[in-house]
Nucleic acid binder design. Structure first.
Length: 485
RNA sequence: GGCUGAUUGGUCAAGCGGUUAAGACGCCGCCCUCUCACGGCGGAAACAGGGGUUCGAUUCCCCUAUCAGCUGCCA
């Protein structure tokens, strides 16, 4: 049988890496076996709906390359399934009534006040209550009268008070819960919309989902869902609960806060492929030691039985490393396209060869914003202190540096070829005559032309980009600085 | 509080009764070098604790601890 999975997000905010990872795994599980991946928007909570959140979901999936396989016809293609659109079809109410007929669900007319009076315990600021099945004992006449009077109602699941329910998770194994623990959860809200608990089951079944893949937060309530399948007489799907992705404090990620949202990461200069690669490895590992995978390779490698059971901390530091790997491996043209805005911002109005600078920086950055601080000296020589001319390992200090700079200046003045190669050859010859180490002369020059402790390139490469005039100017300035010291 | 789950270095993790307990990030050192980075080499760093089962437990069972999730007319 063909595997069918689905990503079922609720449009209530940003899409964080945990959400994305669920989508990714759901996609990979299906595609690994040539199955179908569906998208279903779970927007039954009208209060929590956030404007634009659905678009974020579409944009993200599109950018990452998680294309869904079917849905209602829309603009010549197919859109995702949208629960709010399905409410109008009466599908949820129809199934809820079927359950009522079977005695597996019942109307409940209790108002907030009565419900509040049920709350007996307060733990850590949260009120704990279990519905007391008060409305289960209503006679059909009372129900009919209430309905006729237009009294607001919800429909609740009628769970048994004795026995236990077991369901099987592909990763966690059999999980059993006493039925007495199962609250009579609400299936249909008083506004007529289904709750997640109900819509989820109805939709997974009607969409013929074979593998329900979702976050671990549903693990303990899954018995309730399984009871619903049993009540309908439906075959339950296979369940694959995913370990949580947490923040550095080991807490579940929130949809607020941009540092772990997909688009937030993009803004921080991360590359889509690196993010995907990284989150694929948060809770799953391949056979062998490989860590770098394209989406296609992930599809090939992804065996969901290798998904881990324990939660994973989202570690931005390792993501940075991986992002650096992607940047290093990236085609130069694409890299330049992505780097250019950052270069232009760091070097406004400069008519420098940005491509050369980009090439220098490519193997040295982890995320694009790293560029700015690395290249700023090209635009303007920063103020620096003479102490920078001292380097213990190079055995340089102010005195030796002054000497080198003075001796080398005329060489550069008469030099016509300001290419990296040409300059380097000149310097090599000078080094040979002087009988010292390269660093002994390179350090002072690089310091003079950059004014920085570290630079993304060596002295001669910098001079090539700076050009003759600017290079000489900076060296003379260095000499003056050292002389006045 | 109740329920469910998880527990290998700081982090991601391999391991599925017998191993010197992989690998990666980060950290430290050395080499390379025109500084830094890249690259190469090396190092420090872990089976939560206690009982069982077994000839033998990181691996299986139980208890404790810790953490997390759920406990909503949220998903």
């Amino acid at each position: 049988m063909k595997i069918r999975t689905r990503f079922a997000p609720s449009p209530t905010g940003k899409m964080h890496v945990g959400n994305l990872r669920s989508a990714l795994y759901e996609f990979l599980i299906a595609k690994h076996e040539g199955g179908d991946f569906m998208l279903r928007i779970e927007d039954t909570d009208q209060e929590r709906f956030v404007e634009g959140a659905t678009e974020i979901i579409y944009r993200t999936l599109d950018k990452v390359g998680l294309k869904h396989d079917e849905g209602p016809d829309k603009d010549g293609g197919y859109g995702p399934y949208v629960q709010s659109e399905r409410v109008g079809t009466g599908i949820y109410m129809k199934y809820a009534k079927e359950l009522i007929d079977k005695g597996e669900a019942y109307y409940c007319f209790c108002d907030k006040e009565r419900l509040a009076s049920l709350k007996t315990e307060v733990v850590e600021g949260k009120e704990i209550s279990v519905y007391d099945k008060h409305c289960l004992s209503l006679s059909s006449e009372e129900i009919a009268a209430n309905l006729a009077a237009g009294k607001p109602y919800v429909i609740r699941q009628n769970n048994p008070v004795e026995g236990s329910t077991t369901f099987h998770d592909e990763l966690y194994g059999d999980i059993t819960v006493e039925n007495a623990q199962l609250d009579d959860m609400i299936l249909i809200k008083s506004d007529g919309y289904p709750t997640y608990n109900f819509a989820n089951v109805v939709d997974d079944h009607t969409m013929s989902i074979t593998h329900v893949v979702r976050g671990n937060e549903y693990l303990s309530s899954s018995p309730k869902y399984v009871r619903l399948y049993e009540a309908f007489g439906w075959e339950p799907p296979k369940y694959v609960h995913l370990p949580l992705v947490t923040d550095e404090n080991h807490k579940k990620l929130a949809k607020r806060g941009g540092s772990t949202s997909f688009e937030g990461l993009l803004e921080q200069g991360f590359v889509t492929e690196a993010i995907v690669n990284f989150i694929a490895l948060l809770g799953w590992s391949p056979e062998g030691n490989r860590e770098l995978f394209t989406l296609e390779e992930l599809i090939r490698e992804f065996d969901y039985h290798r998904i881990s059971k324990s939660p994973a901390v989202f570690d931005l530091v390792k993501l940075r490393w991986m992002n650096g790997e992607y940047i290093k491996a990236m085609e130069f043209e694409r890299f330049f396209e992505m780097a250019e805005p950052y270069l232009k911002e760091a070097l406004p109005g400069e008519r420098l060869d940005l491509k050369k600078i980009a090439a220098m920086v490519k193997t040295r950055i982890e995320v694009f914003p790293d560029i700015a601080e690395m290249v700023d000296f090209f635009g303007e020589l920063p103020e620096y202190d003479v102490s920078m001319y001292t380097h213990k390992k190079m055995k340089t200090d102010g005195k030796s540096s002054l000497e080198v700079l003075k001796e080398v200046l005329p060489l550069f003045e008469s030099q016509e070829d300001y290419s990296n190669d040409g300059l380097y050859q000149t310097l090599l010859k000078y080094v040979e005559e002087k009988g010292c180490k390269n660093g002994y002369v390179m350090w002072p020059i690089r310091t003079a032309v950059s004014g920085k402790q570290m630079t993304p390139a060596g002295a001669t490469e910098i001079m090539e980009v700076l050009g003759k005039d600017e290079s000489l100017k900076r060296i003379r300035k260095g000499i003056a600085l050292l002389e006045n010291a």
